[in-house]
Design a protein around this nucleic acid. Sequence first.
DNA 1: CCTCTTTGTTGCAAAGTTGG
DNA 2: CCAACTTTGCAACAAAGAGG
Length: 296
Amino acid sequence: MQLSKIDMNLFIVLDTIYSERKLTKAAEVLHITQPAVSNALARLRGHFNDELFVRQSGQMVPTPLTENIIERVREALASLQSSLNEHDAFDPQQSNRTFRFSMNDTSEAYVLPRLMEVIESEAPNINIESYTIPRADMVRAFSAGELDFALDVPIINHSDLVNTPLTTDRYVCVARSEHPRIASTLSLDQYMSEAHIHVSSRRKGGGQIDAYLGRLGLQRNIKLRIQHSRAARPIVAKTDMLLTIPESLTRGTNLQVLELPFAIPMLDWHLYWAERHESDRAHQWMRERIFDIFRE
DNA sequence: CCTCTTTGTTGCAAAGTTGG
DNA sequence: CCAACTTTGCAACAAAGAGG
């Protein structure tokens, strides 16, 4: 049986008869005449090839088949109803939605403490899931509905995705304060002769820095490749290795923060979401909360 | 592309049927 | 016998097809 072959209103009638147990009462609730309900029931009986309700001591009692399907029918109706409400309102106090984010460790560390604080007070039943989705898989994940938001640099271009800038950061280099060869300034020669830590969630491939140096015909010595920038800082503190990271990540450390000896474009962080969620009130609410965090 | 016809669906009122 | 459900016939309507 194809869904297109059945009048969806019949499911509403089924649900109402189930609730009221009387066709006359169901008709009143539905604002149609009793024969219309009877007719609808007849059509439902045809579709399901089952009596669905049998008369028993003045009541229309559901058959086992009706009992088997009623819960799914009601869930489906509720789901359809909520899709209609999508444009109407979103009550953060009531919502029990789950929002899924793709973030790296840096954005998690920056966004989640502030976001969860807001959620705890304004939207107690909302859940958050965060995991890193590779860029190559991002568009697919959005269109499959596996993802609500992603935080990334403006590198993904697709007509199904919307993105907006959140913040701008600049790269700096950090070294330990007792570094034997570096103090307060950094020359290109020094930068190129020291060993580096490269942070990337990928297994291989350079970052923005390496791409830029490559254009100058240079290649730095990457001695350590790790996934998380927060893990890199203690390593810098104990070794002579250099680490090139966004300036915002250097706060609260007692490392030397050095200007890079070359000009490199600013690091822009963007928030991505699927075009079809543009007018979703829940999404709009969440976007505003994230924008708030970056306005601070 | 427009108009007319055909066909099928829906809901109504009224009449018929059924169970207690 | 009454209340409640079912059936019947009708009118309105929409969609699809036919014809100019």
